[in-house]
Design a protein around this nucleic acid. Structure first.
Lengths: 203, 203
DNA sequence: AGAATAAAGTGACTTAAATCACAAAATGGG
DNA sequence: CCCATTTTGTGATTTAAGTCACTTTATTCT
């Protein structure tokens, strides 16, 4: 159930612990794993698929933060494990996904293992870097560049994406018209080709 | 040397460890504690004063991230402790500061203590929240609102701030003229009063 | 005190992006 | 196949913010 590539990182005792104390769930595309304001009871680690993490501020603006890809975990949940912390973020399945769930009571035990701490610290580091990256890109990068980056990320290796201009606009905090125009621009530059509900990345 | 209010959080054994294995340094205003790209050798915890944390991207844009206030530590350094990681951020003393330094080799030992892990997780949580906050504010908030928030943060209780419009502009990734104009606006709204090198928060 | 430097003020202009107000395709269900 | 709904295209206008080009006002230094 836990992929070997992931287990390998840990010593046998920890592997066994993970085998016994965690379980996996399947999420359908669009299903909400963790809602903002909900109590955190488990730490999720994505086994397959992709989660989209976002945050909605007081004024109802939804801010897309990042994707959680396979073998990554949601660092926000780690920090919420002592106390009855509520989640500050929302995690939704972007595609059908498999997620390994670790009950939060088990975290203390896991933290006893050096390799687990190392895994966790790594997760923190990467997520921090990612957040700073998003920040940078919002602060300095023009929308067309952000759009390209978003498309590549979203494609994740594939060359074709199924999404509406409206949905992109929401993720990038822009408006549909602007995204449509930028996409046209990218098309005329030969960087993408467009279809209804469909974007093809070129080269 | 370590303030009692801080020590109290930890069990005696850990207190003793901190007493023996850490040391404090004084930084003059403007002194660089940790430069971007530098190897991380110590984990800093601010005892007094304030550190300013920023990141410079490939194009040379400097992005102000957050302040580290007393009894807060720099979470970025935690994550860089295994391996020969280089710092992704830059920490500069905003005011004369006292900083407690923990050699990174000691971190593994500290992580053995439940109370330390709890302190650390807390630090992560707060910093994450802060980063998301900055992100939100850049993404959705108009410059005048961000300016007000910045001034309040910078004042930190005090009502008077010593800073030039230019410096504010740099922290907010704006331009001097724009900041000057917005400040004028705030002044005409009675929210601040202005002097050369000096801003007074009203109410 | 007077020159040099730093800080702040101001108008004119440009620009990226948002908004408004529609029109035109594409799709899908009955 | 036709009509309703989604999705996309496009012009016109507005707006916040950035840029340019100076001027004016404080400070500081010799």
């Amino acid at each position: 159930m836990i992929p070997e590539s992931f287990r390998r990182n840990f010593e046998p005792a920890l592997q066994e612990l993970l085998d016994n104390e965690t379980f996996a769930i399947s999420l359908d595309k669009g299903e909400v794993l963790l809602d903002q304001g909900a109590f955190i009871t488990h730490i999720p680690i994505v086994l397959d698929g992709r989660l989209k993490v976002s945050q909605t501020d007081d004024d109802g603006h939804e801010l897309f933060l990042y994707f959680i890809e396979p073998l990554e975990s949601c660092v926000m949940t780690y920090t919420c494990c002592d106390g009855e912390a509520k989640s500050k973020i929302r995690a939704v399945a972007e595609t059908d996904s498999e997620v390994m769930m670790i009950p939060k009571e088990k975290l203390e035990t896991l933290m006893g293992f050096r390799t687990w701490r190392s895994f966790m610290m790594n997760a923190f580091r990467e997520r921090f870097a990612e957040l700073i990256d998003v920040l940078n890109s919002i602060a300095f990068t023009q929308l067309d560049q952000r759009l390209i980056k978003y498309l590549k990320e979203k494609a994740g290796g594939q060359s074709s994406i199924s999404i509406t201009h409206q949905a992109i606009a929401e993720d990038l905090n822009s408006s549909r018209e602007v995204i449509s125009r930028l996409l046209k621009q990218l098309e005329s530059q030969g960087k993408v080709s467009l279809g209804r509900n469909h974007i093809e990345l070129k080269k």
